[in-house]
């Protein structure tokens, strides 16, 4: 990347690099995802039909929780070492800083989950069409979780143990994402339910959260760190 690359790309690149380093959050989320997906079949037992039926829901819940794990420190790590103040010393609006942080988090923590989904879905006895639908819904739906989490992370930025508070704030708002994500996946393999309406609604939720989350997180940072 050239030196002329804007602050946005510089920040995304730095956060991605940090998340991939030792102690970064990227691997934690993927390992958590992997742990849930591999243990569920043992817990549910050898009923493949049951597993295939609840598989999409399990995958979505695991993705939701794996996303939340890393999000708590989205802004806190920058605040703890003083970088948050410095990052605000630009002519770019605070919202572009928020978007850069969320994009980097999504690329580092959520995209690996999406990429791992086709492989891990095999453990839950999903059929190919369901796997494709599940991967598509996770790809479209996880950005909503990241933007939503940014609001929680920004609200909890000054708190030492903000993870619990963040989860309490965020979980209710993540329900629509979960509902439409699982509904679309299920509809893909269940006749005559249509796949596209819930999928389109999932995309709409993502777009709404991208806007609301950015504005909300920026406001929370301004209040907390002003």
């Amino acid at each position: 990347m050239s030196e002329q690359a804007g602050p946005f790309r510089a920040l995304v690149a730095r956060d991605l690099r940090l998340s991939l380093r030792v102690g970064g959050g990227a691997l934690t989320g993927v390992l958590f995802f992997l742990a849930v997906i591999t243990t569920v079949p043992f817990g549910v037992g050898p009923d493949l039909n049951l597993l295939a039926r609840i598989g999409p829901a399990i995958m979505w819940i695991a993705a939701l929780l794996a996303t939340l794990i890393g999000l708590e420190r989205l802004f806190q790590s920058d605040r703890d070492d003083g970088a948050l103040d410095l990052l605000r010393l630009t002519d770019a609006p605070l919202s572009s800083f928020i978007i850069a942080k969320v994009v980097a988090h999504w690329l580092g923590a959520s995209l690996p989950l999406v990429l791992a989904t086709p492989v891990l879905s095999l453990l839950l006895a999903l059929e190919p069409l369901a796997i494709a639908a599940l991967t598509a819904t996770l790809l479209v739906g996880t950005p909503a979780l990241s933007f939503l989490g940014a609001v929680g992370a920004a609200l909890a930025v000054t708190l030492r143990r903000g993870a619990l508070l963040m989860a309490v704030i965020i979980l209710p708002f993540s329900i629509p994402v979960l509902i439409f994500g699982v509904a679309a996946t299920r509809a893909a393999v269940t006749e005559p339910d249509p796949f596209w309406p819930p999928f389109a609604l999932l995309g709409a939720v993502s777009l709404i959260y991208a806007v609301v989350g950015t504005v909300g997180a920026a406001a929370a940072i301004r209040i907390n760190d002003g």
């Binding site: 602050p7 730095r14 070492d81 970088a83 010393l89 630009t90």
Partner: peptide, 29 residues
């Protein structure tokens, strides 16, 4: 904010990055 440097109590360095990477980031940012 775009015309000032702020040197606070905290140094704003990322421990996981090398000094060169830290400075290169700020130059780009």
């Amino acid at each position: 904010a775009a015309m000032v440097h702020l040197g606070g109590h905290l140094d704003g360095l990322k421990g996981a990055l090398t000094v060169a990477e830290n400075l290169a980031f700020w130059v780009r940012y």
